[in-house]
Amino acid sequence: MPIKIPDNLPARALLEAEGLSLMADTEAARQDIRPLRIGLLNLMPDKPATERHFARLLGASPLQVELSLIQLSSHSPKTTSAEHMLAFYRPWEEVKGERFDGLIVTGAPVETLAFEEVGYWDELTQIFDWTQTHVHAGLAVCWGAQAGVRHFHGVPKHVLSKKCSGVFPHANLEPASPYLRGLADEIDIPVSRWTEVRPEDLPADGSLRVLLESEESGLCLLEDIRRRWLYMFNHPEYETGTLAAEYARDSLIDPTTPPPAHYFPGDDPTRAPRNRWRSHAHLLFANWLNEVYQTTPFEMDAIGG
């Protein structure tokens, strides 16, 4: 089944050119299917690129997905036009009376700040609490994942001495998990962060289960079984050239910035990178959507009960 996104969303033309099946409102109305309602709380500065990253993965599933773009009510983005936000996003205050099968919380460029110093921290914690009554399952990415484990479990983050950037091998620690079904014993995933969550800080009661971990870059994917949340500290949604663009940006600020590890062939930034994580990312998101589909109530009003 295709993904339902706004007809004039900038990501639509590019995704259609890639062969992704997209659906308009009129087509969706003709199908006697209840689509999965997935909200995307987009905290990233380049919102059109982030929309494209996640729509690509959500739209590859055989399930029909209705993607809703959500923004914070207490924070206005400075790097995305007001026209784009007004056309495609709704503030959380406007949608908080609704229910969703799934919610994705993205990363944000605030990771070196203490959580309480982030201007929208109070609203974000309210949103995390709201998911316990209005959202069936959640997936948080990068800083969003760090924020989730901090809020729900009190787990701290630690600032690294240098940025962890590259494509690192990760061990599949729970191959029987429905979220990792079909994934290889070791998979490559892009990493791009200045902070980390450490295993020794996880709750001793086992309420957070480690699914993916790297010897080089540390924890990657945690499962919060009781809350039906996944916390992904890295970026399987990245496009082939995303790390290259970040490297070019960072090099302008600091010319001594090292290239992302294991990313450029031969670690040579003049050579075009190759995507070694695309298939893993698609399978991981397909597994998440399937688990949401298999467990969510058919009646939306029953979500959260």
Rank of each mutant, 00 (worst) to 15 (best):
A245G: 06
E246I: 07
T242I: 02
I189E: 03
S192D: 01
D188G: 07
T240A: 12
L222E: 05
C220M: 11
S207I: 01
I187D: 01
Y238G: 00
I189Y: 04
A184W: 09
E215K: 13
L202G: 10
P199C: 05
P259D: 04
L183Y: 09
E215D: 15
S214K: 06
Y247H: 03
L252N: 14
S251T: 15
I189W: 02
E196K: 04
W194F: 13
H262Q: 10
G218K: 02
S214H: 12
F233V: 00
V191P: 03
C220E: 10
L180M: 11
V197I: 13
L230N: 00
A204L: 14
E196D: 09
V197W: 02
P203R: 12
L243I: 02
P265K: 01
P260V: 02
L222F: 04
S217R: 05
L202P: 10
R181F: 15
I189R: 01
E215R: 11
D205T: 08
P265D: 02
R226W: 11
G241R: 08
A245W: 03
D185M: 11
N234S: 11
G218S: 08
P199D: 12
L219Y: 11
F233D: 00
R228F: 13
R227Q: 12
S192F: 00
A245V: 08
R227E: 13
F233N: 00
T256I: 07
P236C: 03
E223Q: 14
D224N: 05
I189Q: 02
D254N: 14
D201L: 05
D250I: 11
W229D: 09
I187W: 02
E223K: 12
Y231M: 05
V210F: 10
E239N: 09
S207M: 01
S192P: 01
